[in-house]
Simulated assay, not measured.
Amino acid sequence: MNNNNNESNVANFPLLLGWVLKEKQKYGKKGAGKRITKKVRTILEGYFLAGNANKSNYYNAQDMHQALQKKVLEGEIENKDVPKISTIQN
């Protein structure tokens, strides 16, 4: 009788078996994505500070992305290091 009760509890449990195992968890993986390199970060900070110092030199996210693409063509940075426009905006 006790065995039947356990089987019905397992069948009614809303989570899949093994949900508590660490390798199954989707949370707590902060920082697992791609990071902006220090060189690119320094360049972006320069664009931002130029806009703060002089409003006529204001760069929006698209302008910054285009400027980074020019630096790729010049060989200063690699294409894989250029972040998306949405990343620059944030």
Rank of each mutant, 00 (worst) to 15 (best):
I77A: 07
G33V: 02
N57E: 00
N57G: 07
K22Y: 05
V40E: 08
S86N: 09
A50V: 06
M64H: 08
Q69F: 07
A11P: 04
I36A: 03
N60P: 06
E23N: 12
K80Y: 07
V10M: 12
L73T: 14
E76C: 04
K22N: 13
A67H: 06
K84E: 07
V82G: 01
D63V: 06
N90W: 14
K55Y: 08
I36N: 03
N3E: 15
K80I: 05
K55C: 06
P83Q: 09
Q62R: 13
I43P: 00
K55T: 09
A32W: 10
I43K: 00
Y47A: 12
M64G: 09
Q66M: 14
T37M: 02
A61I: 01
V20E: 13
V72K: 04
T87K: 12
Y58G: 00
K55L: 13
P14Q: 06
R41E: 11
K38D: 15
N12H: 09
K34V: 15
N12A: 13
V10T: 10
K70R: 11
E45N: 08
K30R: 14
K71P: 05
G46S: 00
L21A: 15
E78G: 10
N12D: 15
E23Y: 11
L16Q: 13
Y27E: 11
S8T: 15
Q25Y: 01
D63W: 10
L73Y: 02
R41C: 08
M64D: 03
Y47F: 12
N6I: 07
W19C: 08
W19V: 03
I43R: 02
I85T: 05
Y58M: 00
E74S: 14
E78H: 13
F48M: 06
L15F: 11
Q62T: 15
Q66V: 11
D81T: 02
K39M: 06
F13W: 11
N2W: 09
L44I: 06
S56F: 12
E7W: 13
P14Y: 12
T42A: 10
E7M: 14
T37V: 04
G28Q: 01
N9I: 13
G75M: 00
T42P: 05
N9H: 12
G28A: 01
A61Q: 06
D63A: 06
E23P: 09
K30L: 14
T87W: 10
A53M: 10
N90T: 02
T37E: 00
F13C: 05
N9F: 15
N57V: 06
S86V: 07
Q62M: 12
T42H: 09
G33N: 08
S8Y: 15
E7Q: 14
M64A: 12
N6D: 14
K80R: 13
Y59S: 11
H65M: 06
